[in-house]
Design a binder for these strands. Structure first.
Lengths: 331, 331
DNA sequence: GTGAAAGCGCTAACAC
DNA sequence: GTGTTAGCGCTTTCAC
């Protein structure tokens, strides 16, 4: 059916070994042979079978990126960065969406076990630290964007606590004292770290922590609006809100707008992630930007190093965040 | 290094053939052997090498979905549908992002040529019809969401012309006569078909087509706002706008809001696609919904049929669209 | 500079 | 019901 290296060899009048040498850029081939092989290749429209090659070489040069959803511009941008660097290093990136379920994630991890891919990058995971540590012993796995407490494997992420600290401190410097937090009950470490940063910022400014200014639910869109409703039902309404994700911030802004509250002047709102929508909203949304492209590049580079090397780097690499101030905080 | 079928065979005290039979659910294995093999498998934590299997079977049971961007909820939802159906049929879906460049797309198509995947679904493509027809002769390729004029291969999409016709007719039925169009100059067939639907709706209602009510640029976000500015500079401003994509509609709404124009009452805006953001905007955005999940399921099912069969189905399958009316049209 | 041949891990045809 | 073996397409050692 398909044209193989044998066909090329026959067509070029050389052995398969010579064809293979040409394919892999070996120097030990005469110009004449090389030319005849290349000619045969294009004449037959030959494309090497990577299954054979990978089986023989015990490597695929493919990295799988598993993400909970592809509907998050944060992830898309990380993947773009991964692709950029992978391309330079001769690797391909393929992605799979786990929908945040451990069943799907486990199934997709099979591609690692059955040698379909050389390594995996997890953008947020359902696996426990223990399980990850066990897996990382035998396979090349990395976390990106979202660390796991207690997991001892290659990780690239922003310093969530310090980023949240900066965000809230910015609100404080604008004169706000009554600052509410929209957090989550999820097990995600980033959510907790951002909450820690919020608390620290208040503490450093000598502002008392008030339990009624904290709303915790899930990352689901409607929770932002729910939080806002609750905050606005308080006697002492907050004048500013820090949400641990842009989507929650946007939902809160949406609800505020419905309630006739002027976001930007009457109420300041700050999100986290800098998703595209932040610029499209009315008002535009202030937020903390994660350097997605850079995170993707870095994690791929480190992971490929691990794939190629014996002694694994299981470091935790922190990348710089950046505050983006827009209309929702009156900027 | 890795544990292979041989190790399992030795451990279980049987031949590799028997292990293979157990692995593949053959009935011709005694209960005793089967039990011993399964025991050995779990004792050794064995996972079959898919490179070996795929090489031997000449199939991978993996389908690649190439998309121009992963930052479009439309595509994410299509992929979800693809995964759902693929899972039922024993296939895996992996995705790759071409960024809308033919270079990346061509590189990703290599996975088809080098046997890394069994088939490809293209969600919008840079390939010409001719090229696609040539490729489809030898490989299993399908288009989803976006057809290509003159391409004779398996395609699943909505009837863009009829969908746009319905959208514009809805505006007309609301009493609008001055209806502008935000289209594109892109080569995408869907954009053109939607423009045709717009024209047809006007024609059927006896409303004259006015060139100054047409704005064509790219799918880029800012173009919606640019269009709105131009429309509002006209002496006779349109009272309604139909945009060929939600992003363009949202951009126009954003700009209108900046200009103090009340969208929903003073100006009706209708988009296309029903992306998540439609519900998050203030006002929420009326639009035409494409049945993404269904399209994904259908295209995967048909493509797998093609992969498994000799005579290829290169039909063009149309799925039903649905109008979603929200605040931006005063609903 | 080149070819013959072994073997990567697996499945399936064949023999018993 | 089970084992032996050829061979999928490729790379790479070894010999020349």
């Amino acid at each position: 059916m398909s044209v193989t290296i044998k066909d090329v060899a026959r067509e070029a009048g050389v052995s398969v070994a010579t064809v293979s040498r040409v394919l892999n850029g070996s120097t030990n081939v005469s110009e004449d042979s090389s030319a005849r092989v290349n000619e045969a290749i294009s004449r037959l429209n030959y494309s090497p079978n990577f299954l054979g090659r990978s089986l023989r070489r015990c490597e695929t040069n493919v990295i799988l990126c598993i993400m909970p959803t592809s509907e998050h511009s944060l992830y898309s941008r990380i993947v773009s960065g991964m692709q950029r660097r992978a391309d330079e290093l001769g690797f391909d990136i393929v992605t799979a969406v786990s929908s945040g379920t451990s069943a799907a994630e486990a199934r997709q991890m099979n591609m690692l076990f059955n040698k379909t891919v050389d390594g995996v990058v997890l953008l947020s995971t359902q696996f426990e630290a223990e399980e990850l540590n066990r897996l990382a012993k035998n396979y090349d796995i990395a976390l990106c964007c979202e660390g796991v407490t207690g997991a001892d494997l290659l990780t690239v992420a922003v310093d969530d606590e310090s980023a949240a600290f900066d965000a809230v401190t910015t609100l404080i410097n604008k004169g706000h004292k009554d600052i509410a937090l929209i957090g989550t009950n999820s097990e995600s470490t980033s959510s907790h770290a951002r909450e820690d940063g919020y608390k620290l910022a208040l503490e450093m400014a000598g502002i008392p922590y008030r339990e009624e200014y904290i709303y915790r639910d899930t990352y689901d869109y409607h929770c932002g609006g729910d939080a806002l409703e609750q905050f606005m039902s308080l006697k002492e309404r907050p004048t500013a809100i820090f949400a641990v994700s842009d989507l929650l911030a946007i939902s809160a802004i949406h609800k505020a707008s419905e309630m006739g509250i002027k976001v930007g002047s009457e109420l300041a709102v700050m999100g986290f992630d800098n998703i595209f929508m932040c610029e499209m909203m009315v008002p535009t949304v202030s937020t903390v930007e994660q350097p997605c492209g850079k995170m993707g590049e870095l994690v791929v580079e480190k992971l490929i190093n691990n794939i190629r090397s014996e002694n694994k780097d299981n470091g935790y690499y922190t990348v710089e965040h950046k505050l983006i101030l827009r209309s929702s905080t009156g900027d």
